[in-house]
Simulated assay, not measured.
Amino acid sequence: MEIQSVGEAFIRPGQLLADRTALSAASRWTQAVSEADGVCVIHLSAGVDPCEVTADLRGQGLRASPNHVLRGQPLWFGGPASRVFPAPPVGFKQGRSRSDVVVGLLDTGVAKHPWWAGSDWYGRLGPDDADATEGTQAGHGTFIAGLLARQAPGVSLRPHRVLDGDGLADEASVVRVLHRLRGNPPQVLNLSFGGHTFDDRPPPLLGDAIGALTQTVTVACAGNTGSDRPFWPAALPCVIGVGALDAGLQDRAPYSGHGTWVDACARGDWLTSSYLETGDFAGYAAWSGTSFSTALVAGAIAHAARDEPARRAADRLLDSEETRQIPDLGVLVPANL
């Protein structure tokens, strides 16, 4: 994937996202247009800056954005947990617990694992939803699936592979998958990826796609930026943004994004979960990052939603008057691992 850095944001060079109302206004800069699943990708003429065109179109009241690149958020820089580590097997059985709650998981896919052997949801997966086997974030989706399964026993997962093996996806690909979810939306949606925008404004097409899932509680990671700069989609008003606490559950993990736009937090350091069987890994790993604290919050909401609508369960779980509040990280959600 070709990527251009704009400050601390990343975009697909020469590409613009818009809805159909902006096509005419953008025609003088347009070389080609591809339209699918509710989003138009405008391929700009050579040398045209997508950020400048975005500013022009927005000045006309139109919805447009560069095609931002989003990244999974395991911890990759500094500290003792800068990569994924092999871990000994962890005992876990789904048992007889069954839940009608469905959690959508947009990530690198999910690999075969003993924890969900024979489960209905895994048996319905196709080859396009299998976890990536190569790349710096291969196994990311499988790791998150394990956290969700343990936090919400009996839940059904609905994985969709949107991130490649290096944990990268462009905004257009994510919006298209979200558009397809409208016909059969999950109760809870886990998005353990994100990024900055070039101007720190909300990405309108991504916001529209998530907002259209009116019955779904969307949970997204606050990012491993260590800053209060808004990280999208977590900072969208319609999304529960999740930061990470250290293993002691007292302090913010130093890498975690934070600020008034973060709604909840959970442990992010040294979590153990399912993983690929490859090299030194025998299907289990230890990893850190806001990607994984997000799965704990999404799983807690899914578990609570067994007995009430997901939105009501989320509101109750995140009621700051009844639960511990962490400054700039929101409500603490405990892990049931």
Rank of each mutant, 00 (worst) to 15 (best):
E134G: 02
D100G: 15
V69K: 14
F193T: 13
F77A: 15
R58A: 04
G79R: 07
Q325I: 13
V162Q: 00
G183T: 12
A169S: 05
N224H: 09
P237C: 00
E35T: 12
R71S: 11
W116E: 13
Y275R: 05
S65N: 09
D199K: 11
T225V: 02
N67D: 14
L317Q: 06
L70A: 06
D164V: 01
Q60Y: 02
V162H: 02
A300T: 03
R96H: 10
A169I: 04
D100C: 12
G257S: 06
R229W: 00
P203E: 03
P309G: 02
P309V: 00
M1K: 06
A117G: 15
S273K: 11
Q215S: 15
H179K: 11
Q15T: 14
A138G: 07
A234E: 09
H140R: 02
R20Y: 00
A313Q: 03
L189I: 01
I3H: 10
G248Q: 14
L332E: 02
A18I: 01
A310I: 08
D208N: 07
D37T: 01
L148S: 07
F231N: 02
P159S: 02
R161K: 12
P66N: 01
T290A: 04
G257L: 05
I11C: 13
G167V: 00
T278C: 14
W287V: 12
V219L: 07
A212C: 01
T133D: 08
Q60H: 05
S192V: 10
V33N: 03
D164M: 00
G211V: 02
L62A: 05
